[in-house]
């Protein structure tokens, strides 16, 4: 047990627990904004876990994407939600039965996959971060190219559709008011 593995395990556990704690805060608080930002920090903790596992690119990517996404979600909370400050002490959990069942099923499924999937032989050590990034790039360009292209086009379609829907609504209203 080298110092590195000890440290690695420690940080993994620490960030893992932090991620779980923030996730619990998401539902325990009644303020919408706190909920959104707690989710943000939960995701950041997961990104930190990736870093602890020496998957540098994934970790940095996770931290970057989640920050922007969750901050935007927080803004939408304030704009649309009735009580973003949580003064109404609203209960954040809904459909309790269904979510409990779904949670248990999801946890079992994740554990099953983790223990029984064929992950291949355990590597002696992880390649260096620079090499990892390079290999990742090659992987995206070779084997996984189709996956990422499809994902990219799908997202683009969704963006265009959303914009078109919003504009259409506005034009309908303008025409409606003009009459």
């Amino acid at each position: 047990m080298t110092v590195q593995t000890v440290l690695q395990t420690f940080f993994l556990a620490f960030f893992g627990l932090a991620a779980i704690w923030f996730a619990v805060v998401v539902f325990r608080t009644s303020s919408m904004v706190r909920s959104a930002l707690a989710l943000l920090f939960s995701q950041t903790a997961i990104g930190a876990m990736f870093l602890a596992m020496q998957a540098e690119f994934l970790g940095v990517l996770q931290i970057m994407m989640m920050a922007t996404e969750m901050a935007i979600m927080a803004i939408f909370m304030v704009m649309y939600m009735m009580d973003p400050g949580g003064l109404g002490e609203m209960d954040m959990t809904h459909q309790k039965r269904l979510s409990q069942v779904a949670g248990v099923v999801g946890a079992v499924a994740a554990l099953v996959v983790a223990f029984f999937a064929g992950w291949g032989p355990v590597a002696g050590s992880a390649p260096g971060a620079f090499e990892q990034t390079r290999l990742l790039g090659l992987e995206i360009m070779e084997r996984s190219m189709l996956i990422f292209e499809t994902a990219g086009v799908t997202i683009l379609t969704a963006m265009i559709a959303a914009t078109a829907t919003a504009i259409a609504v506005r034009e309908v209203r303008k025409r409606g008011e003009g009459e």
Binding site: V78, M81, M82, D83, P84, G85, L87, G88
Partner: peptide, 12 residues
Amino acid sequence: HGGHEGHGGMDF
């Protein structure tokens, strides 16, 4: 703003 003291004039 943001419903801190209830809603400014909205009927829910």
